[in-house]
Computed example of a mutant assay.
Amino acid sequence: MKSRRILLFALFTCVFALYGCVSSVSESASQRSLTVNIDKMTLKNVSDNSMLLPIRKDSVQKEDIMRVINGTYNDQPRVRNLGGQLSTKIAMEQVAKDYKKQVREKQKKLEEEKKKAEALKKQKEEEEASTFVGKLTTYGVDCYGCSFSNGRGSTATGIALDMYQGVQQADGSFQPGIKYGNYYVVAADPGIPMYSILKISNHGLSGSGISLDEPFYAIVLDRGGAIYGGHLDLYIGSESSGAVQHVLQTTPKVQIVRSGA
């Protein structure tokens, strides 16, 4: 009887041990299967390469990212970090963080580009509105019909023009040449306020610092009986000085950079 009990106990022990072995083998096989399945996935770098995420369809991945962003993502995706350890939700949270950062940067860039485009459009519209096709002639202090004495005359604004000393400046002194400050002197139509600054291009003139291939800037200091519409008359000192000469017959383009003083 005792020996039968021993036999039954031994048999029970063997069965229990065998069950444990099978359970262990099954668990081990499951782990291996999980590892194999993960290893077969194509992995993608995330953020600073601290993690790797299985690549899925873009629509699914983006949907999951948005769920993480909205705080509704409760799944535990199995991913591996560079150390080979299984990670969980933190990987998707990092993807969501990177995604939000990229979206913010893209939105910021688009807003900057939009503002820049709007500014350029506004600038172009303002330039077009203040630009006209002109006619350009030259005159000297000794021109026919001009009032001058001893080589000196004056503009409609009272600025003295002297063939020998130059142009009177704001402080009363004379600057040699034909400029008022940094600007050439022109007579313009009454529709353009005195002291307006003009940018004149495609002018066909050369001399006294004016170059054919570059625009020059002038200030409206004078009027004239024959000066109206888009007609501008450029002061050159003396009529016979040849300080500025017409080299090409062109159609000048005039932009009002500043209207009035």
Rank of each mutant, 00 (worst) to 15 (best):
P176Y: 01
M92K: 06
E127D: 14
P193W: 02
K179Q: 14
T137Y: 09
Q102G: 02
L136H: 03
K115P: 00
V185C: 10
D64T: 00
Q107F: 00
N182S: 07
Y195T: 02
Y183T: 09
Q123R: 03
K199R: 11
R104D: 14
Q94D: 12
T157N: 13
K116P: 00
E113W: 07
K122A: 10
I200T: 05
D189Q: 12
G158T: 07
K114V: 08
G151K: 00
T72Q: 14
E105M: 11
I197V: 07
Y195D: 09
Y144K: 15
C143W: 09
N81H: 06
N150C: 11
Y144V: 12
Y195W: 11
T138V: 13
R80W: 09
L161Q: 01
T138L: 13
N182C: 00
V141Y: 09
L86I: 15
K199Q: 03
N182L: 01
T72M: 15
F174I: 10
N81M: 09
A188K: 08
K97F: 11
R152F: 07
K97Q: 12
S59T: 14
Q175P: 13
I65D: 03
K179Y: 05
A96H: 04
R80G: 03
G158C: 06
I192H: 03
A96V: 04
S130T: 11
G153M: 14
K62G: 01
R67A: 09
P193G: 02
G153H: 11
L86H: 02
S154R: 11
V103I: 12
F174N: 05
L161T: 01
D142N: 11
Y73V: 01
M194W: 04
Q102K: 04
Y195H: 10
S154P: 01
N70Y: 02
Q123I: 00
K116T: 02
D64Y: 09
E112W: 02
E125P: 01
N81K: 06
Y73G: 06
K89V: 07
D189H: 09
M194K: 07
S196V: 06
I197E: 01
A160E: 13
